[in-house]
Design a protein around this nucleic acid. Structure first.
Lengths: 335, 335
DNA sequence: TCTAGCACTCACCGACCCAGAGTGCCAGTC
DNA sequence: GACTGGCACTCTGGGTCGGTGAGTGCTAGA
């Protein structure tokens, strides 16, 4: 039904439209893409492509524009992923290896991705579900104000303010050591289990404090830490709008809310996934495309990707997202 | 030179323009603001206000629009800060008291401020220059990969990845205890001083590691932690543009860069400062106004505020910024 | 000092036309 | 049967042209 030439025409329409942002006509196609046929033939092909729903035209006398289905076909069958230049690879690698801790890796990654794709980059923090507990610390900051700190095997540090009224310094040390003994090396499930029993095993003098600390720790352990999304490259949204700023509002709303992004980045796999326009469940993103993939943190995966206009350069974007995900997995693996 | 009526005219122009977003004419002023004079009289006043540079008009037959100088006069002499309603106060207080740690306080504050002002809110992280060191921790995550953690009296936790090759568990404990003894309670200046001497005082076996740890800690201490800005409410930028999206590009660029925001928020005092349009040194913000103030963290100050169009509701915005700064200072003081 | 009146200016809006780009279709050719 | 050249058609975008209305500046008079 769709012979090679028709597919070539579709490919030409997508690539030309992506770079010119203007509906593309039959003559432009034969001229730029060296199809050895006449514009009339291309027109016939285009009429058929339109019947099939791959392209459309904004008005009678305009050229053709790809539909979501057209982009989908392009991504699935017509494009080849552009490998990154070695200069780009070096830049990525150099930029990421300078990171000093987990937060810094993430912040650098997302900025990098925004820059290389010229789009809005998003990255979910790694989940700590697989991580084991490495250290619990209990610190008096100021009179009765204390800080409870939890460090896990991923190097993620979380903390909570805590009230230390009625606990002297010896008690503090005792509680700290007790919690450390109990939790060292524990998985989240084990930790919850042990934390439930622990308060009953300490001296009644400190039972109240131990209970509240245990409750806080359970909350910290349960909170996987991955419900946070780093975002960069929002200034690239302006090119998205292209003089029509109603389009950027829903995207900005979505980014501000985070919860949609979390779900989006929670569904990724190590393959690069591309969601085009209406394929996005969330209606705010119906004018946008999301290219995402997973990066590895120890034995676990988390998501990263970009959000841009459906009219985006898919081959380059896919290549960049993939490359950045690989590099960041690598960096996280070797520390 | 500017009698009471002329000032009233200016006030009327500013308030009407802020809410209608359209140039305001002489008749509208006399009707809405009950000045007991004729439109012609107001026109004479407007001509004078224009000579003095307080207002301008986009074209001959249009109404008047305030200039930056006009807004400045309005803010300095013509407006009274609207107190917040008690419902607003309760909402602010309730939202902030739920925070679990320092990061959470900041993230909640900035989201809150964006919401109550319907503008882009920015907040600089507290400086840790005044904080003393509470704890140093050294943890083995995985083979030779380690984590160095520093906790200060503000409850701020910073961490760095570190290579632990050649250090056994006993050595790790020894180093940790040694660093803790040396640094406990130290101010940044003291810490740097002591860290320079420490490597020479440990066993030669661990001198190499001690040196690199000391170097890392010095960097962490020197890094005041305040060179980070939290941002929220970017979706409010759309109303900023108001159909003219070239205006939001420079603002987005500035926010993405952070460095300008840092300087901006580094200059604030406990009084609310208002920078209107051209008064902002940075040319990207020449179309914007920045309302900012300082919030207190222990004995130190850091900045917070909003960025919006010069055409903003200054009295409400100033009141909100001030109120939020007070509440967050309060929350941070009592923990 | 204020006001009423009047002429003037200019953006905005709709109507109109034109040029140009692009299409769809059809008859003819290979 | 597939392709092509030609042609009529459609529609956008830009430009021109008045009319309208809001708003002004100025002047003479209260």
């Amino acid at each position: 039904m769709l012979d090679d030439r028709k597919l070539a025409v579709l490919r030409a329409i997508v690539t030309d439209y992506v770079c010119s942002r203007e509906p593309v006509g039959s003559r432009a196609i034969v001229e730029k893409h060296h199809l050895d046929v006449s514009p009339a033939t291309v027109r016939n092909d285009m009429a058929l492509l339109e019947d099939e729903g791959y392209i459309t035209h904004p008005h009678t006398s305009a050229g053709r524009v790809p539909t979501d289905k057209g982009y989908r076909m392009f991504v699935d069958r017509l494009s080849t992923i552009k490998p990154l230049s070695s200069a780009e690879k070096r830049a990525i690698s150099a930029f990421l290896t300078g990171a000093v801790d987990l937060d810094d890796v993430i912040s650098r990654t997302v900025r990098l991705l925004a820059q290389v794709t010229s789009q809005v980059a998003i990255m979910r923090y790694p989940s700590t579900r697989q991580a084991t507990i490495k250290r619990v610390d209990l610190i008096r900051l100021h009179d009765d104000r204390g800080l409870l700190v939890l460090i896990n095997s991923l190097g993620k540090v979380s903390q909570r303010h805590i009230d230390l009224a009625g606990v002297d310094d010896d008690g503090l040390l005792m509680l700290r050591d007790r919690f450390n003994e109990t939790l060292n090396g524990a998985s989240p499930a084990q930790a919850t289990d042990r934390l439930e029993r622990l308060p009953n095993e300490v001296s009644p003098l400190f039972r109240g404090q131990a209970t509240s600390i245990a409750a806080l720790l359970m909350a910290m352990v349960a909170f996987a830490g991955s419900d946070k999304v780093a975002v960069a490259g929002l200034n690239n949204l302006v090119q998205f709008a292209q003089g029509y700023d109603a389009a950027i509002k829903p995207v900005l709303d979505t980014i501000e809310e985070q919860v949609v992004l979390l779900r989006l980045l929670g569904e990724v796999t190590p393959d690069v996934s591309v969601r085009i326009g209406q394929e996005n469940q969330h209606s705010n993103l119906n004018q946008a495309s999301v290219v995402a993939t997973a990066y590895a943190v120890d034995d676990h995966w988390s998501g990263l990707g970009v959000v841009g206009p459906t009219r985006m350069d898919y081959p380059s974007t896919i290549a960049s997202v993939q490359a950045v995900a690989r590099y960041v997995s690598h960096i996280l693996a070797e520390g």
